[in-house]
Design a protein around this nucleic acid. Sequence first.
DNA 1: TCTTCGACTGCTTATCTTTT
DNA 2: AAAAGATAAGCAGTCGAAGA
Length: 296
Amino acid sequence: MDNLRSLDLNLLVTLDVLLAEQNVTRAAQRLHFSQPAVSVHLAKLRDLLGDPLLLPGPRGMRPTARAEALRAPLREALAALSKAVAPADPFDPASADRTWRIAATDYTESTVVLPMLGDLRAVAPNTRLALVEMAPALMTKQAEQGDIDLAFHTTDGSPEGLRRRTLFTERYVLVGRREHPKLRRRPTLKQFCELEHVMVSQSGGFQAGTDEVLAGLGHARRVVLSVPHFLIARAAVAASDLVAMAPERLVRNDPALQIVTAPIDVPGFEISMLWHERVHRDPAHQWLRERIANAV
DNA sequence: TCTTCGACTGCTTATCTTTT
DNA sequence: AAAAGATAAGCAGTCGAAGA
């Protein structure tokens, strides 16, 4: 590439037209330059390439052997460059064979990825999906390096420096197994506190938003199981008399579960999808993001 | 950090030179 | 003599260095 540093690539465009027209004046017209401008271009090209390139002959300007040898490769190179800087082709899901890498928790896998999976398989059958563990601290870097294409996170506390789009707002509901004897009707606050609860905490904690709300009301519940993932909480609830305050979308279509409105109002959360500026305008990424937004 | 100034570039028009 | 190419002069825009 070093031999290109001293070369104004526009001169090559002029040379290409000159070789086609074999006439400085006509080349100038095609390039929308004045004749002297193209004449100067030609002089520079002659100097640069150490060859007269075009010589006056019996019928206009005739290319030298060097110029003739340049004609085809120059054509090809300019066509390739032109293609490279052309607007990106629109994304064609039917023929695409790329792999998507998405950072998600088990909750967003269930509520965001699963609902769009069938659609994705049907519309883009040759693409692949890799779900990777969500690590908020690494997310921005992963997105920047292209290790992940997309991530999901609660809008509150989501990593800085990424583009985002809100997908939905989630609320908490009280959930227990179907036929749970204490959930035939909406429990009172006292009954709610007497139930045995399971909660989700990455760090094995026993305090969550629900407990803060209860504390504000002068109450406390009995959390007897703390698990790091939503899906195991759901499974535990389905298989026992434990109950949980769970995100509604995670439990609403599960026939093994009974959903009840809780006697307290626990603030929900908002889920956003996040992506890097680098892929913001990429047609393939735009397509995927739109697909996901529509599916939820 | 903003402004100014000079060098440089790439074009134009006008004109000269060369070729047919 | 006409057509085509080359050169000259001038103008506008850009860029980097220097100064406020």
